[in-house]
Structures are given as C-alpha cells and as structure tokens.
Measured scan of single mutants.
Amino acid sequence: MATGGRRGAAAAPLLVAVAALLLGAAGHLYPGEVCPGMDIRNNLTRLHELENCSVIEGHLQILLMFKTRPEDFRDLSFPKLIMITDYLLLFRVYGLESLKDLFPNLTVIRGSRLFFNYALVIFEMVHLKELGLYNLMNITRGSVRIEKNNELCYLATIDWSRILDSVEDNYIVLNKDDNEECGDICPGTAKGKTNCPATVINGQFVERCWTHSHCQKVCPTICKSHGCTAEGLCCHSECLGNCSQPDDPTKCVACRNFYLDGRCVETCPPPYYHFQDWRCVNFSFCQDLHHKCKNSRRQGCHQYVIHNNKCIPECPSGYTMNSSNLLCTPCLGPCPKVCHLLEGEKTIDSVTSAQELRGCTVINGSLIINIRGGNNLAAELEANLGLIEEISGYLKIRRSYALVSLSFFRKLRLIRGETLEIGNYSFYALDNQNLRQLWDWSKHNLTITQGKLFFHYNPKLCLSEIHKMEEVSGTKGRQERNDIALKTNGDQASCENELLKFSYIRTSFDKI
C-alpha cells in the first residue's frame, strides 16, 4: 500500500482533458527560462521544448504516446526543470519506465491550478516501474492521483506527508504495488545497510526511497516546507523545498512566496507586481503582455491589467481597466465587458449561442446573426445582446428569417469595421425574408467608422429604411451602385405612401 494514499474509496472516473512563447529569463536562482504550460502528445517531438525550461508557468501534460519505446527515452533528460506552477499529468506514455532521468531536479509542483483537485496525476502508464522524482520536495496545493499503472512499484516507500501538507485526498490505487509483488529495495538494503531515512506512518517504520538508488530526502521537522541542505541544516524561511546553503534567500532552489532578481522575498516591493503567484514583474512586463494579447485571437491570451499590486489576466467583477495605466478602477454604474472572439468572429444561430455573449459591452471581433427560429426570440436576444455598444469588426445579418427588427441591439452605437466582410463591408444584410426595420432612427444613433453597407434580398425592408441608415451611420456616399439592390429590397412591402385627393359631386333626387 502506498504510504499516505487512500484505498478502496469510491472515486469519480478520471477524465483526461485534452506555445513556446518565453516569458522571460528567471535569473540567477533558476538555471534556465520560464516556459508556458505545455500539452505534449502523440510523439516526442515537442518534448524537446523543455530543454531550457527551469519553470513551467502553467501545467505540463505528457500523454497518448503509443509508439514510443524505452530506448526512445534513454537520452532524454531535462535537468534544468525545477518547478511547475500548476500540475504534472502523465497518461498512456508507452515505453517510459521512470522519471528519474527525465526530470531529475523537479523540486516543486505548486498546484496553482489543479487537474480535478490533483497536482500530480500518473494514470495508465503501462510501462512505468517507478516514479523516480527523487528531488520532489513540495506539492504546495492539491493532491496526488496514481492509478492503474500495472508495473509501478516504489510507492509504499514514499512518505507523501513530507511532500504535501495533507495526504487525506491522495488516491493511489490499482498499481502493481497493490499486489505486494514489488519487493522494493532501498539503497544499501541488499548489503544489509540502512542508507535512507525511515519514518513512521500508520504504525509502520519504513525506509523512504524513490528507487533502488535514490533515497527520499527527509528534512528535520523544524525546517517545515522550506527544505534543508545535504547536511540537514534548514533553508531560509522564504525558500521552498530545498537550498544549497542554509538561511540564505539567494540560495533557495525555489521560493515559498515570490522570486525577485535572484532572491526569494515575502512580497513584491514597489515598483514590482505579483505575477502568477510566484514571481515579481515590473510595469513594462505587464504592459507588454497586455499589448501582445490586445489584437491576438490565441486562446488563453489575456490583456493583463494591474489590481491590488498584482498583474492579473482581467479586472475583477465591479472594476474596469483604465487604459492609460492598466489599473483596475471601480465602475460607475454597470461595468464594461470586452469579449474577445477566439477566431475573430462568432455566429449567433440560437439563443444558446447568444447567451455566451451575455453582459458583453464591447465585441472584439465580428458578429454573424443567422437565426431561423426560436421561442420568445426578441426578448431572449435583447437579454443577451442588448448591452453590446461596440463591435470592432463587422455585423452580418444573414438568412435570419425569424427577425423582424434589429432593435434587440438596443445599445449598439459603434461598428468600427477594423475587419470587413469580403474585404469591403462593415454591415452586411443578406436574404432576411421578414426583416422590416433596422432601428427606430428617431431614437437610435449608430456610427460606422469604416467599410460599406450591403443589402440584398431583404424583400420587406424598404429602401427608405436603408437610406436612413446611410445618413445616420455616416456611410452615405461610400456605397457603390450594386451594394444596395434596388429590386430585391422592399419588393414585397408597401414602401411608397402617396396622399390621394378626392373630389365629389353631391346629387339628390331633384338636383344634379
């Protein structure tokens, strides 16, 4: 039985969820670079991206490699990797027998973001014989899940209580170790020597080791999670996991709180800001991140802002960003909400898709409305799209047979046209069989910064309504002859009103 693990408890099935942008060198404390989270699957090609990484700022997932063999891993080693800020997950990587050479110096898994409450997941690794993470000293947050690894031993010899604050939620089941077939031998045991430290858990006094050649490092209890030197002297209180010299914040392997210019500090002093819960960055760093993602459509890219001495992905609820200094300031009234469309555009074809934009005031991208039916549609669209004030790209209304009016965009005031449909149009209306009105132009103002209007096959939309939009939106004169079809717009509506004058002759039985 794995020490510190839980057996036999019912657990939810383990679901495996399925960018080499360097964020800056980590400095003297770390020998390499800070790398983003990685999802490495199918083959070993991307694994080489770990070569210079000291910190993975995010998670590391290595999974679904069915053609790899043990010899493929023999020359692979990433000794610079010290810390993973989120979680480490391995799933069905064939041929991998140990992690001792792959990650010989991995010391800390912070667990800032977890995989279903777990910071370390080893699942269905069919050839893994031992973990071998002999320098792993601290899992700051989260638990361990090690399950269905039929060859995995050296679990009962690990004292997880020396690595985690609590072992109650560890789930370590259905491994070879369960069948008591392992016969784990710690260093020196074969020669009758006791080389590794022994600890007591559940009444068992057991030597602690990761492999037959690597003991588990056990520091004096007084050192807590700070770690200790090879001689057993406690590291500085700002260290986490390990250090090369005692009581020196510049000799830590990793930091308990924050890293700044080669030393570990309790908090980031001005003019620095907390970033990702582990390091200090200056304003320029946060500003660069903001600008890199301002026009990016890459998933996970955030326009970072500053709030409460932190550089964070977005302002919290009730705050909006001051564009001059990136500071989050309290909103006066309802907060603006910028919604970034991942692929640059979004099609609204149902109430469900409209709900995804609920509360958005600025759309960074283009909207395509293609709704053919739905219950209580006008009210639903207004509830979900009615706060949109600005669209950076274009607005396209296409084959939306259920629409009679666009009044559900009740606050839309600006279409920038930074991206144009077919390279020309910022407003595009095609084949809307029941569209009769755009907006009530006596109450609604709309500016279209650039781009043209396109109207074709809107049989109940009168040309007068379209011409009014040209005047109000500032697009009059931009359109070419064929942009607004004269014969297919309003051709099934009563669009022309003329005053009919009647004269009559009164007659009676005795007068003409």
Rank of each mutant, 00 (worst) to 15 (best):
R263G: 13
T329V: 08
G300E: 05
H302I: 08
L99Q: 00
V93T: 07
D72K: 13
I122K: 00
N138L: 10
D178R: 07
S161A: 15
F275E: 00
I146D: 01
N43D: 05
K80S: 09
A190Y: 10
T320M: 08
L164I: 09
E51I: 15
K224D: 11
L64P: 04
N42L: 07
R46Q: 06
C311L: 04
G142I: 02
T85M: 05
D165H: 07
E168V: 10
D277C: 02
Q299K: 15
V305Q: 03
P104Y: 01
F103H: 00
D159A: 06
L89N: 01
P249S: 06
S143H: 14
S112R: 10
A119C: 03
A230H: 11
K148H: 08
K80D: 01
P31L: 11
Y154K: 11
C196R: 14
S296P: 05
F103W: 04
T45R: 15
I201Y: 11
E151R: 07
N117Y: 05
F275H: 08
F275W: 10
E97F: 15
V144E: 01
I139E: 01
T229M: 12
L233H: 11
K294W: 14
N175M: 06
R69K: 02
A198R: 09
D277M: 09
S77V: 07
K80H: 07
I185D: 07
V305E: 02
S98P: 00
L260R: 00
V144H: 01
V305R: 07
T320R: 08
F283T: 09
E124P: 00
G300T: 10
P270Q: 09
I306R: 02
S213L: 11
N135H: 06
F283R: 12
C53Q: 00
T199E: 05
Q299G: 06
A198Q: 02
S166F: 06
T320C: 14
C182R: 08
S98W: 01
F123P: 00
N282V: 04
P70H: 08
M38F: 02
F285R: 02
G300C: 09
V121D: 00
C215H: 00
C228R: 02
I222F: 09
R141Q: 15
S166M: 15
C331K: 07
L29A: 11
P330R: 10
C243Y: 00
C268Q: 01
D165N: 05
H214D: 04
E181A: 12
G188H: 12
C280F: 01
I146W: 00
V167R: 06
S237F: 13
I201S: 13
I185Q: 13
Y259V: 06
R263W: 15
D75N: 15
S112E: 14
G318A: 04
Y154I: 10
I185W: 15
P330T: 14
V108A: 04
Y273R: 04
C215D: 12
T85C: 07
A190Q: 15
Y154H: 13
S166L: 08
D261R: 09
I109M: 02
L64W: 01
D72N: 15
G241M: 02
N52L: 05
G241D: 02
C311Q: 02
P336N: 11
G37A: 15
H212D: 15
D184E: 07
M125D: 05
L326E: 14
C235L: 01
L44M: 07
T189S: 10
S324M: 11
R279S: 05
I122R: 00
K148D: 11
P336K: 07
S323G: 14
C219H: 08
D184C: 15
G192H: 14
L120V: 08
V206T: 15
D159K: 06
G232D: 15
M83P: 00
S296M: 10
C239A: 00
K100P: 02
V218T: 08
C228S: 03
C286R: 02
D75G: 02
L155G: 14
P79A: 06
H212F: 11
L240N: 13
L88K: 00
P79S: 06
H236Q: 02
P31N: 15
F91G: 15
K191Q: 05
S225M: 06
I201D: 08
Q204T: 05
G142W: 00
Y94D: 07
P70M: 10
E238M: 06
T211V: 10
N295D: 11
S323Y: 14
I146S: 02
L289S: 11
W278P: 01
C280T: 00
T45K: 11
P316T: 02
V200I: 10
N149Y: 01
L174P: 13
A119I: 00
S296K: 07
N138E: 05
N150S: 10
C182Y: 03
L128H: 01
C196E: 14
D178Y: 12
T68G: 08
R298N: 06
L332C: 07
F116Q: 04
I306D: 04
C286I: 13
G227P: 12
H226Y: 14
P31M: 15
G188C: 10
M137R: 10
T189G: 14
F258Y: 14
N195Y: 07
P334W: 05
K176Y: 15
L99M: 11
G227K: 04
D288F: 06
L120S: 00
R69C: 12
